[in-house]
Design a protein around this nucleic acid. Structure first.
Length: 377
DNA sequence: TCCTCTAACACTTTTGAATCGC
DNA sequence: AGCGATTCAAAAGTGTTAGAGG
């Protein structure tokens, strides 16, 4: 796949695996697919629509994995991490800080519908989180990921060895994230450049691109039944990225200038993130994400194949137990504690939020926090 | 007044059941 | 009867935009 990043980031060596990892070997490597598309959006300032009933991401999260144990079962999940502690507003064609972030909504985790599956399955082809949906409805009952509008997030992937979704809570997590997947959650697009880019790449938007005029007659639309039958697992489609995703973004996009730099950038360290994250109140105003300073070296990441078990994590899970005898019950709402990044302790002026991806200690720390998987579509 | 959110809209793509042919 | 390929209608998805609401 042409969009797989060629750059690599190697992290610390694996530690001794837990007992279950009897033939633990090497490192798990995660690669972001359609990375070029993500970069194109990121260079402008990615916006993701969130709606009451849930909206898919575009670009969607698609990854490939290697380094897993072929016959060990893994559960792979994704959640959304606050990128900083600010709320934003779109003013005069640029993003500005509009104050401190609001209290974080219930933290939810989306589990890949193939989970659990053996390592050979995950490594056979890329994984798509196409069907994951984002919502701003804090009372959402469908298991969609709940976000605040006008706040920034980035997806975080979790891999853990587990034979069932209900044993996940006892296993060590490994976390991955990709800086270029950071986005601002919005209820309506703010930046017209984002709109154009989405229309150019998202096939579902063709109706608006080619339809031309809008009829605003308020005729009633027939109510559509919920996708109950869609709940049947469609593995075939999960790993097929849409042809449009393969297309390169328009070279006329200013993003290209920064992208050309990517291969020559220095390895991403904690402080060399875009200036945006270091001082949002000032640097957000010009180019939304200052990508010409940006380094893409972490599109492919390696982390220790095993994160040390955190004894007190089980206490966290004990406080927020998952049902253990009913698959549907896994969709019950759970309200875990706020994400660590959402705490006041996190200050983007002091360190970039990408740190955790590159420092083992951070990855391990984050793995202490509970994950809840009750959403598969 | 400003900002954010919601819902209706037209159109495309995806999905899956039904049908057909071997 | 069983299987794979094809067809097609329904469902799901998209961004836009007027209007509501805080």
């Amino acid at each position: 796949m042409q969009h797989i990043s060629e750059s690599k980031l190697y992290l610390s060596m694996p530690r001794s695996p837990p007992a279950a990892d009897s033939y633990q070997q090497g490192c798990i490597r995660m690669t972001l697919e359609n990375a070029d598309l993500w970069k194109s959006f990121h260079s402008i300032g990615t916006e993701m629509i969130i709606t009451k009933h849930g909206r898919r991401m575009f670009p969607h999260c698609s990854i490939s994995l290697s380094g897993l144990q072929p016959f060990a079962n893994y559960v792979i999940m994704i959640d959304m991490v606050p990128a900083d502690s600010f709320k934003y507003k779109w003013k005069k064609e640029q993003w500005e800080v509009a104050g401190k972030s609001e209290p974080q909504p219930p933290c939810r985790t989306y589990m890949h519908p193939d989970s659990p599956a053996p390592g050979c399955h995950w490594m056979k082809q890329s994984l798509s989180f196409l069907k994951m949906k984002l919502t701003n409805n804090t009372l959402d009952q469908h298991g969609h990921i709940i976000l605040h509008s006008m706040h920034r997030y980035y997806p975080r992937f979790h891999i853990t060895q587990a034979d069932s979704p209900y044993t996940v809570r006892w296993g060590p997590f490994q976390n991955f994230s990709f800086p270029e997947t950071t986005f601002t959650a919005v209820t309506a697009y703010q930046n017209p450049k984002i709109t154009k880019l989405k229309i150019d790449h998202n096939p579902f938007a063709k109706g608006f691109r080619e339809g031309g005029t809008h009829s605003h007659s308020k005729r009633c639309r027939s109510n559509r039944s919920p996708p109950a039958k869609r709940a049947a697992l469609d593995r075939k489609s999960l790993c097929n990225s849409h042809p449009d995703l393969q297309r390169m973004p328009s070279p006329s996009q200013p993003a290209e200038a920064g992208k050309d730099h990517a291969s020559t950038q220095q390895p991403l360290k904690g402080g060399n993130l875009s200036a945006v994250e270091q001082d949002p109140s000032e640097s957000l105003h010009a180019e939304p994400l200052e990508l010409h300073e940006y380094d893409y070296s972490c599109e492919e990441q390696m982390v220790p194949a095993s994160v040390p078990y955190q004894p007190y994590r089980s206490l966290e899970y004990a406080r927020y137990p998952l049902p253990s005898n009913d698959v549907d019950a896994a969709h019950n709402l759970v309200h875990p504690p706020p994400h660590p990044l959402a705490t006041a302790e996190h200050n983007p002026q002091q360190h970039g939020y990408y740190h955790h991806s590159h420092h083992h200690s951070h990855a391990a720390d984050w793995s202490q926090y509970p994950l809840f998987s009750y959403s598969c579509w």
